[in-house]
């Protein structure tokens, strides 16, 4: 049994872990300060075995810095974490035995072929020759790189590079995987294939911590930690986040003239925030202030040409945008 902390909603500050299995990643007050900039600010969370834990947040929120600390790439300024039961500061080498890591940028050797990259990383992970041969074949098959073994990694397509990087990260069959924006720059079909692999591994007990900017990918995660300004501002399952992360009511407003109208809508009393949604505007309103009709009337009163107002349910993207808003506005 373990506890985790959802900072957003006081009612849910303490929740039981769903699986009830032992936590594999425990982050305890992890902090990273670069000069005068606090990139990661006292993070607390834990991830049970076999969970896909998604890390969401705007660029520069501290997602990569957190992953890098957990992998032992960066030292922590304060706080600590255990990964696979080993302390990241005291026992970084033990941690490294148990993790696979894929960085944002393609970081394999571009001037080595697919098999040479696999052989190198297999070798430095200390795989014996026969096991390496087995794993290399398995990884090539898994990553769909059959027939491309002799190609230089630098000449592969983005999707192939990404699958090769994943392959090299799981050569030693680590029980824990850290994936930092693994699918940036990859086409939707390849992304889906990639997530099939991730989900398959998770179903076999691999714990995955992944950062992403894609909302459809976030839906695949067991739980999502939302990080903004180095702080964890929400932590829950995707459906709970959609339900609870945004406490305002959401309306989709279609205006005749969008030009400059966003500021005018936001100045209407009771409207908390707006965001563009396609050709329309998503308007977050203080709960109980408006109905679709009364909002439309309020806007028309203000001289705006309103075509339609519709009450809509909060999507993960809406939640993301509200959570990423500056602290003052977010606290509605």
């Amino acid at each position: 049994m373990f506890l985790n902390v959802g900072l957003l909603n006081n009612k849910r500050t303490i929740t039981l872990n769903r699986n009830g299995t032992e936590p594999v990643i425990v982050v305890d007050g992890l902090t990273k300060v670069f000069g005068r900039f606090t990139a990661v600010d006292h993070l607390h969370f834990s991830v049970p075995r076999g969970e896909i834990f998604g890390f969401l947040g705007p660029n520069g929120a501290g997602k990569s810095t957190t992953i890098r600390m957990l992998c032992g790439l960066l030292s922590s300024t304060e706080g600590t974490a255990t990964v696979g039961g080993y302390d990241i500061n005291r026992d970084p080498e033990r941690v490294r035995q148990n993790i696979g890591y894929m960085s944002q940028k393609f970081s394999l050797y571009k001037d080595l072929t697919v098999s040479e990259n696999i052989a190198f990383f297999g070798g430095v992970y200390g795989l014996a020759r026969t096991r390496l041969r087995e794993r290399a074949a398995a990884v090539v098959r898994l990553a769909g790189l059959t027939g491309l073994e002799k190609r230089l990694a630098g000449t592969l397509s983005g999707a192939h590079q990404q699958r090769l990087a994943l392959g090299c990260a799981i050569l030693h069959e680590p029980p824990i995987l850290f994936l930092d924006e693994p699918t940036s720059g990859v086409d939707p079909i390849s992304r889906r294939l990639f997530w099939d692999l991730i989900q398959d591994m998770a179903s076999r007990g691999v714990t995955v911590l992944v950062t992403t900017h894609f909302m459809d990918e976030a839906e695949f995660c067991g739980r999502i930690g939302f990080i903004s300004g180095g702080r964890l501002v929400a932590l829950d399952t995707p459906s709970a986040l959609k339900r609870d992360a945004v406490r305002e009511e959401l309306y989709e407003v279609s205006l005749a003239d969008m030009q400059g109208s966003r500021e005018r809508v936001e100045s209407v009393p009771g409207v908390v925030a707006t965001s563009y949604f396609g050709r329309n505007l998503h308007v977050f309103c203080r709960p109980g202030t408006f109905t679709a009709e009364s909002l439309q009337q309020a806007l028309v009163r203000d001289g705006m040409g309103v075509q339609s107002v519709e009450s809509v349910s909060v999507s993960l993207e809406d939640a993301f945008i509200r959570l990423a808003a500056p602290a003052g506005k977010a606290a509605a």
């Binding site: 032992g72 790439l73 890591y101 960085s103 940028k105 970081s107 571009k110 992970y125």
Partner: peptide, 13 residues
């Protein structure tokens, strides 16, 4: 510079 060091550091090398 090329980021490969990052990948090498996370190995037990």
């Amino acid at each position: 510079e090329e980021g490969t060091m990052e990948q090498v550091i996370v190995t037990p090398l």
